[in-house]
Design a protein around this nucleic acid. Structure first.
Lengths: 282, 282
DNA sequence: AATAGTTGTTGTTTTATTACTAAAAATTAG
DNA sequence: CTAATTTTTAGTAATAAAACAACAACTATT
């Protein structure tokens, strides 16, 4: 895991005057990326070369390079402001926090994507005789969204949100089928059991869940989505957004793999819907 | 609408030599943020002051400021390249594009949020005797996700994804009830008809849909989500992500409005789930 | 007291910016 | 339609600012 400049700033393995620099930067990072070396040196009450040495010690090529890297780590993610919603928040505040959290989740998930693994998953989905998608609770609607996505690709697919039906259906899978299991925690007993059942039939088991979870251990292909710790009950869980985007990626990958002959199928689906809609205004 | 430096780079309202600068930067943005003004000027085959003027014309304070801003928009994954997925895309490419589009949608939606309107919606939801949520197709799973969210808040809520049941249920609503209609296009005839029915009963009709659409005209409260034009059939629709986050905001708002007495209810729900899960590893 | 480790001072080099000038394009008058 | 004038645009050269390197001084530790 490559650590950002912002992360390094928080370690306190600094010498006296470099610590001053670090705290000065942490005090107002936004200001730091805009100020010159002289300015920052004055603020931190150290000499200019100290600031420069500080930067090189952090692994940067110099002060400008440091500013650039800091700017980038600030831009991605918002690691500085705690984004937990509180009872005291104004509408504007909690709205911002929720949108922030959502965007951050997307960005974070993107960074952690394992492309070769994705390709494997897409391969097996593209060749699947049948795709079964299981989820419970909030992951249930994710499963249904996934069904909708793959259905449009003209692939035999079914989502189940009922524990018993999931088990029965899983038991009925065969070699060549793919079972996608969606679980935020990866610790839902019933889903894990279902994964075990699917394993016995020889179906390919794909998990969209937290790494190192019980479910993760029962998957042929683990598409890991890191969960933020559910510290605050007022903060909605954003991981299902990551799940949805991941499914978009899978479905798109399959669509591309199937190539241009699918274009006409998708067109068919589109025209089939036109009768259900009011025409677009000009 | 605040646009990033990266956005501005794509507009071609440049003069001859500044266009050279823009293309040079777009050719290799990563390199641009690292090079000096002299270097970039040579690459673009223009003089150094031209590069500088280019930066100030873009609204930056100077070249260093420009580099900083560009670095930030690159880091936050802004799609500075056209984000339509093509058949030729590598897995890495279309994955990036999809995640980019998702993040961009979230950010864009956030900017367009109308806070007072949100507050009105939250108010009516918090006071609702009953909440009904309707969606079809992809919006169906959004509706079910919404049901799940409000259900956790101990509010009488039901989602329907069947056109006929939606109509019947809408006809049975009363004053004090709230009907949430979710539609990406806002042009699904059946949903619009259902909105009309709900209107006659005196229920509050909230629409989560495209502004200026037929559905939008039949809502008491319109929570507008701008849709990106569905230009490419391989590009998944990201608007449902916006819908989901918006629902998060609504549910959170209601939770906050109901105050601390809800904390215990949420706690109850949590403990009710523990028996269904494997314990967390230490 | 000596030495290794840190920090500050001075000066050089690189980088960015400003002011000015030349060229090109556009506009208007003849 | 052409020529003259104005306006816009780009480049040159000079200036200012910033970053960096080499060296000197200081501190703490043994």
């Amino acid at each position: 895991m490559l650590s950002t400049v912002a992360d390094k700033l928080k370690k306190n393995t600094f010498r006296k005057s470099e610590a001053k620099v670090a705290t000065a930067i942490l005090n107002d990072p936004e200001a730091a990326i805009k100020s010159s070396i002289a300015n920052l040196a004055k603020n931190a009450d150290v000499s200019e070369p100290t600031v420069n040495r500080f930067c090189t010690n952090l692994g940067c090529k110099g002060f400008p390079d440091f500013k650039l890297q800091l700017a980038q780590s600030l831009a991605s993610g918002t690691p500085y402001v705690g984004s937990n919603v509180t009872l005291q928040d104004s509408t504007e505040e909690f709205t911002s926090k929720i949108f922030d959290a959502a965007a951050a989740t997307i960005t974070r998930t993107r960074k952690n994507m394992d492309i070769p693994l994705l390709e494997q998953a897409i391969d097996s989905l593209a060749q699947a005789k049948k795709i079964e998608i299981y989820g419970l609770g909030a992951s249930g609607s994710v499963a249904q969204d996934a069904q909708h996505k793959f259905f449009r690709l003209n692939i035999p697919v079914i989502a189940h949100v009922d524990e018993l039906i999931q088990r029965m259906s899983a038991a009925a899978t065969q070699i060549g089928d793919v079972v996608i299991l969606i679980s935020n925690t990866g610790r839902t007993i019933s889903i894990v059991k279902t994964a075990e059942i699917a394993h016995t039939t020889g179906a390919t088991v794909i998990g969209i869940t937290t790494p190192d979870s019980p479910l993760a251990k029962h998957c042929h292909l683990l598409l890991a989505i890191e969960t933020e710790d559910d510290t605050d009950m007022y903060t909605p869980t954003t991981s299902r957004l990551a799940h949805l985007v991941l499914i978009d990626v899978l479905a798109t990958g399959v669509a591309i793999k199937r190539g241009p002959r699918f274009a006409e199928h998708l067109q068919k689906i589109k025209t089939s819907l036109t009768q259900t809609r009011y025409p677009k205004a000009l």
